[in-house]
């Protein structure tokens, strides 16, 4: 089954508020089996507009990724992020098909 991902780009504007947000999302992320793939890593904005933080979270499935976003615990945390950061977030299904260079 294809995994599910959150892809978020974030500019933090209020450190303490963002810390409260990260604290609040620990429980729902753990509950839905999320793993950080990228978070505070070095990056280079090679094209277009970018934000300072690029976070990718992997979930066991697309359904889990969506359910986590829609969970009461995560929904309760959203205002904490909105008041402490400018961000975009998409939930996307992983790709399980053949890769370049793989023989069929």
């Amino acid at each position: 089954m294809a995994k599910g991902y959150w892809i978020a780009r974030v500019d933090v504007t209020d450190m303490e508020g963002y810390q409260a947000y990260v604290k609040a999302i620990g429980k729902p992320l753990a509950k839905y089996g999320a793993k950080y793939v990228t978070r505070g890593g070095t990056y280079e904005a090679v094209e277009g507009a970018s934000r300072a933080r690029n976070v990718t979270l992997e979930f066991p499935s697309y359904e889990d990724a969506l359910a986590c976003y829609r969970s009461d615990d995560y929904q309760a945390a959203i205002p904490l992020r909105q008041s402490s950061a400018d961000s975009e977030l998409v939930v996307v299904e992983g790709y399980d098909g053949p890769q370049l260079g793989e023989s069929a």
Partner: peptide, 9 residues
Amino acid sequence: IDHAKFLYC
């Protein structure tokens, strides 16, 4: 250390 950086400490 990574988490503290993630939290902007």
